[in-house]
C-alpha cells in the first residue's frame, strides 16, 4: 500500500511540474514581458530596458528563470493581471466559488441521475427502460454541451407556448443567468454541465452491475431466498459501485474544465468566463493562473480517487 501511494504521489508531482514547465514556456512565447508592461508607452531608454530585464531576471539562464518562477508559484504568487493590474490570485479567488458551486451541483445531478438509472438499466436489461436510459446516456455524451445549454435556454427560459386546447401555458420557468439569483439559476447550467457525466456514470454503473449480477454469490443470495430488492441493493449495488466511484473522481475534475464552455453560454461569472475574458483581452497571466489551478484540481482529484480506490479494493494495492 505504501509503495502504491509513493508511486502514485510521484506521478502526481511530476505531472504538476510538467505543467508548470509548459505554462512557463508558453508564457515566454507570448513575448517579452517588458513589452506587455510598456503598453502604449513606446519611449524607453536602453538603461531602463536593461534595468527591467535585471528586475525580472531576464538576464539569467532560462533554467534559473524557471526556478525563480516555480518559487513564486509555491508562495502562491501567480503574477499580476496585465489589464486589471491586480494579483491574478485575487481575481481567481473572487470567481472560484461560482465555478466550484456549479461543478458541485452538476456533479450531484450526474450522480443522482446516472447511478439509479444505471442500476435500473442493468436490472431491466433489454427493456424499454434500458433502451431509454441508454439513449439518455448516449445523447448526453454526443450532444455538444454548449448546444444543450442553448436548447435548454430556448425551451425553459425563452419559453415555448404550449396549447392544449382547454388551457395554454408558456414554459419560461427558469432564469438564464446568475443575475437572477436563487437555486433556480443553477438548474439549467447544472443540467447542461452534468448531462454528459450522468451518461458516463450510467454506462459504467450498468456494465458493472451486469457483471456483478452474473456472479456466483448473487445466485447464492437468490437461492437462499433473499428478496429481489435485497439482492439488488444489498448484494449487487455495493460491489458494482467501485467502478463508477473511480469515474466519479475523474468526472468532478472533468466538470471543472467543462465549466468553461457552460459558463460562456450562461454568462456564469466563474473561472471559465474569466479565462475567456483573458483570451479576448490577451491577458496571459490570468489564463496561466486558470490553467494551473484547473490542472492542480484535476491532478489532486485523480490522486485522491486512486487512493480511495486502493482503500476500497485491495486488489489494486497489490499490483
Amino acid at each position: 500500500m505504501r509503495q502504491f501511494l509513493i508511486r502514485r504521489a510521484i506521478t502526481a508531482v511530476v505531472t504538476l511540474l510538467a505543467v508548470t514547465v509548459m505554462v512557463f514556456i508558453l508564457a515566454r512565447m507570448t513575448g517579452d514581458p517588458r513589452i506587455l508592461l510598456l503598453g502604449d508607452q513606446t519611449q524607453t531608454s536602453q538603461e531602463q530596458w536593461d534595468a527591467w530585464g535585471r528586475d525580472f531576471g531576464l538576464d539569467r539562464p532560462l533554467v534559473v528563470q524557471y526556478v525563480i518562477y516555480l518559487g513564486k508559484l509555491m508562495r502562491g504568487d501567480l503574477g499580476d493581471s496585465i489589464l486589471q493590474r491586480r494579483p491574478v490570485t485575487e481575481l481567481m479567488w473572487q470567481r472560484m466559488p461560482n465555478s466550484a458551486q456549479l461543478a458541485v451541483v452538476a456533479f450531484g445531478f450526474s450522480i443522482i441521475i446516472g447511478i439509479p438509472l444505471g442500476i435500473l438499466s442493468a436490472v431491466t436489461r433489454g427493456s424499454a427502460w434500458d433502451y431509454l436510459s441508454r439513449s439518455f446516456a448516449m445523447f448526453g455524451h454526443a450532444a455538444p454541451s454548449f448546444w444543450v445549454g442553448i436548447v435548454l435556454i430556448f425551451i425553459f427560459a425563452v419559453g415555448i407556448t404550449v396549447n392544449l386546447g382547454l388551457f395554454e401555458f408558456n414554459t419560461d420557468w427558469l432564469p438564464t443567468s446568475r443575475k437572477e439569483a436563487g437555486w433556480r439559476s443553477y438548474v439549467l447550467p447544472a443540467i447542461t454541465l452534468g448531462w454528459a457525466s450522468a451518461g458516463g456514470q450510467l454506462r459504467l454503473m450498468r456494465s458493472s452491475m451486469l457483471e456483478v449480477l452474473d456472479a456466483e454469490y448473487i445466485k447464492l443470495a437468490r437461492a437462499k431466498g433473499a428478496s429481489r430488492y435485497s439482492v439488488i441493493l444489498k448484494h449487487a449495488v455495493r460491489n458494482a459501485f467501485i467502478a463508477p466511484l473511480t469515474y466519479a473522481g475523474l468526472t468532478l475534475a472533468g466538470l471543472v474544465t467543462g465549466t468553461i464552455v457552460v459558463e460562456t453560454v450562461f454568462a456564469w461569472p466563474g473561472l471559465g468566463l474569466l479565462s475567456i475574458w483573458a483570451i479576448n483581452n490577451s491577458d496571459y497571466p490570468i489564463l496561466q493562473g486558470v490553467i494551473l489551478i484547473v490542472t492542480f484540481a484535476f491532478v489532486l482529484t485523480a490522486f485522491a480517487t486512486d487512493v480511495l480506490y486502493a482503500l476500497l479494493d485491495p486488489r489494486i494495492r497489490l499490483q
Binding site: 506521478t11 511530476v14 505531472t15 510538467a18 505543467v19 509548459m22 508558453l26 512565447m29 507570448t30 471543472v256 474544465t257 468553461i260 464552455v261 479565462s275 475567456i276 483570451i279 490577451s282 496571459y284 489564463l287 496561466q288 486558470v290 490553467i291 484547473v294 490542472t295 484535476f298 491532478v299 485523480a302
Partner: peptide, 22 residues
C-alpha cells in the same frame, strides 16, 4: 506512459485557448 498520463490531466480547452491567444 508518463507523458500520456500528463497529457490526460491537462485541461485541453484551456491549453488550446492559450495557444490560440499566442
Amino acid at each position: 506512459m508518463r507523458i500520456v498520463d500528463i497529457k490526460f490531466s491537462l485541461p485541453f480547452i484551456l491549453i488550446a485557448l492559450a495557444l490560440t491567444l499566442i
